[in-house]
Amino acid sequence: MLNYTTKRALIAILTLLAASLVVFAMLEIVPGDPARLMLGMNATEDAVHNLQEQMGLNQPLAIRYFSWLGGLLTGDLGRSYTYSVPVFDLIMERVAVSLPLAAISLALSTLIALPVGIFAASKRGKFSDTLAMGVTQVGVAIPNFWFALLLVYLFAVTLRLVPAGGFPGWGAGFGVSLKSLILPSIALALPQAAILARVTRSALLEVLGEDYIRTARAKGLSKRQVLYRHALRNALIPVLTILGLQFGFLLAGTIIIENVFYLPGLGRLVFQAITQRDLIVVEGVVMLLIATLILVNLLVDLSYAIVDPRLRGRS
């Protein structure tokens, strides 16, 4: 177990390091001088020079990379040029919107998908299975931002049950804040739930065809007992894999959905930073998202070993 854990963790750290090189290189291949690019064409020589100094652009490449990397490790992501505040503070403020949104959506999609997938697998070939699979097939094809627009039209514009967009801030009250996250979470969760339900069903069906399931049935266990005691646990690995992958799509989805609902999260931050050419903010947010993604996939890898004891011995 320890061996397996160490190897996965090492790979994750190496991937993260390599990703930091890629993100750092991005700033380097910007055509022209980053300081001039950020300040625009009309900037004075002095202003450009000052920003170069502040960004450390007159130091050698390797030194710049390592001081940036060191900054990442200590939580110092530099200062935002447009907001004049540390990028770390800016990100923390926005994470307070994006993280709850992603977490609620993930929980919602899992809570919907697992029962639907299990139900469909237990009714294989029957009408209810066909119906469930038809609905999920359509669900997979729906872009979440379009679904979001339909939800806004129905629940915000027509029925006026929830706000169409905006976020009051957690300081304005837990209830109203949560209310403005309802539609965004549903818009994110349902298309993901469709994928997850399909994977759960096919993973279960695969397991239900195994010899030990027949043995379990032959020794007199009921279909229900076999499903919950033997099949479900063994079908968890593909489901976990997809959950890990989905987290990446969910993060990406959050970026788009925040723009539909005007939520002040990381997604809005990154798009505003692009239009304002605030490269340091873009770098910081992209690095944070990648680190999260790598961490989640590491956790998924490690959870395989908990679900499947055979993996623990492997290095």
């Binding site: 890629v22 055509p31 992209v286 998202l289 990648i290 993604l293």
Partner: peptide
């Protein structure tokens, strides 16, 4: 694995920032 760590949207964000 490395490329996989950059979902299409993040790559697009980076590419757009630069080009």
């Amino acid at each position: 694995d490395l490329v996989f760590a950059f979902p299409a949207l993040l790559s697009a964000v980076m590419i757009t920032t630069v080009f």
